[in-house]
C-alpha cells in the first residue's frame, strides 16, 4: 500500500493561539484512518488544512506525493462537522449543484446521484425542499453529496454525530463498502467503538499535537496490560490456588454455574503459563487476553500529566 495523503509538520496559529504544533500524519491508500482527540484539540483545523480550506502557517499537505492544488481537490469528498444545506433548495437540485461544483459534468453527476438515491431509498425526496426533510434525512443527503462525485478520498468530520443507531449502522456499512471499493477514508470521531470496528490506523490529537499514532491493533497491543478474561466451571478456591506468584486475580464474579475472572499476569508469557496452571483445577470455558479499548487508551492519554505539558500553555 502506498501513502495517499500526507500532512507534513503542519503548524497553524489563529492570532496568538497555537492550534496545531508540528502535526504529521500519513494516510495509506485504501485504508480507514481515525482522527481522535478531545474537543478543541485541533482536529477540525487539521481537517480544514487537509481539505485546503485553511492554509497552514508552515508545513505541507501532499496528495500522491504532490502538493495539493485546486485541481486535485476534486478527488476529495468532505463532510464537515457543522454541516448544512441551502434550506430553500430542492433536494435533487441541491445535490446536483454541490456535485457539479466539484467539477463533475452534468450527465455524470446525474447518473452517480441516481445510483446513490436508489441505494439510500431517496428517490421520493427529489423535489422536496431541504427544510421539509427530517434531520436524519438531511444527514443522509449530506453523506450522499460527499460521496457522489466519486472521490478517491473521503474526509468525514464526526460522521456519526446526530445519527440514530440505525442510521449510524447504515453509515458504518457505507464506509466499509467505500473502503472495499478502494476508497480512502479519514474520519474524526468521539465514538471509540466505531474506531475499533472501522479504523486501520489512528492518530490522537491533543492540544494541537499528534501524541499517539499508528495501526489500531498495534496501538492497542502497545497498551496491553497482560490482563486475561477467563470463564470457567469449578470451585473458586481451586482457581485461586492454581494462581502462582506470577498471577493475581483482579476480579471474579459468578453468573449461574459459571465464573468469570479477570487475571493480571506479571510475566509476558502469561497465556501459556496461565492455561497450564488452570487446566488441572477447573474446567476452562473461554480464555482470551483483554485488550485495552480505544476508549481506555483515549482517556488515559488525554488525562495523563505528561500529555498535558505543552509550551503554549506555559506561555499563556
Amino acid at each position: 500500500m502506498s501513502i495517499l495523503l500526507q500532512a507534513q509538520h503542519i503548524d497553524k496559529h489563529f492570532g496568538d493561539f497555537h492550534v496545531l504544533k508540528d502535526v504529521s500524519i500519513d494516510v495509506q491508500e485504501g485504508s480507514i484512518f481515525g482522527l481522535l482527540g478531545p474537543n478543541g484539540a485541533g482536529k477540525t483545523t487539521l481537517i480544514r488544512t487537509l481539505t485546503r480550506i485553511t492554509a497552514p502557517d508552515s508545513g505541507a499537505i501532499l496528495f500522491k506525493g504532490q502538493p495539493l492544488t485546486d485541481e486535485t481537490r476534486r478527488h476529495f469528498g468532505y463532510l464537515p462537522e457543522e454541516r448544512g444545506l441551502y434550506r430553500k433548495m430542492r433536494v435533487w437540485e441541491q445535490a446536483m449543484y454541490l456535485i457539479r461544483l466539484k467539477g463533475v459534468d452534468k450527465s455524470t453527476a446525474s447518473a452517480n446521484l441516481n445510483d446513490w438515491f436508489d441505494r439510500f431509498n431517496m428517490q421520493d425526496w427529489r423535489s422536496k425542499r431541504v427544510e421539509e426533510l427530517s434531520k436524519g434525512m438531511q444527514q443522509k443527503l449530506q453523506f450522499v453529496i460527499t460521496a457522489a462525485h466519486d472521490p478517491e478520498i473521503l474526509i468525514l468530520d464526526e460522521p456519526f454525530s446526530g445519527f440514530d443507531p440505525v442510521n449510524t449502522e447504515e453509515i458504518k456499512q457505507e464506509i466499509l463498502g467505500l473502503k472495499k471499493s478502494g476508497k480512502t477514508i479519514i474520519f474524526s470521531t468521539h465514538n471509540m467503538s466505531s474506531v475499533e470496528e472501522l479504523c486501520d490506523d489512528i492518530a490522537l490529537i491533543h492540544k494541537g499535537q499528534n501524541i499517539l499514532h499508528g495501526a489500531t491493533q498495534e496501538v492497542r497491543s502497545s497498551f496491553r496490560q497482560n490482563l486475561y478474561e477467563i470463564t470457567f466451571k469449578g470451585s473458586k478456591v481451586a482457581f485461586a490456588n492454581a494462581m502462582g506468584y506470577q498471577f493475581e486475580i483482579d476480579s471474579i464474579k459468578e453468573t449461574g454455574d459459571k465464573l468469570h475472572a479477570l487475571v493480571r499476569s506479571h510475566t509476558d508469557e502469561g497465556s501459556r503459563l496461565l492455561l497450564k496452571a488452570m487446566a488441572d483445577h477447573v474446567e476452562v470455558l473461554s480464555f482470551h487476553e483483554k485488550m485495552p479499548s480505544m476508549h481506555d487508551i483515549f482517556i488515559a492519554q488525554v488525562s495523563s500529566p505528561e500529555a498535558s505539558t505543552d509550551p503554549a500553555q506555559d506561555a499563556a
Binding site: P80, G84, R87, L98, L101
Partner: peptide, 16 residues
C-alpha cells in the same frame, strides 16, 4: 444565510 445554514464549509471545500 450560508454561514448560519452551515453550508459554507461544504462550499469552500469545493470552491475558493
Amino acid at each position: 444565510e450560508e454561514k448560519t445554514n452551515r453550508i459554507i464549509e461544504v462550499m469552500v471545500s469545493s470552491v475558493r
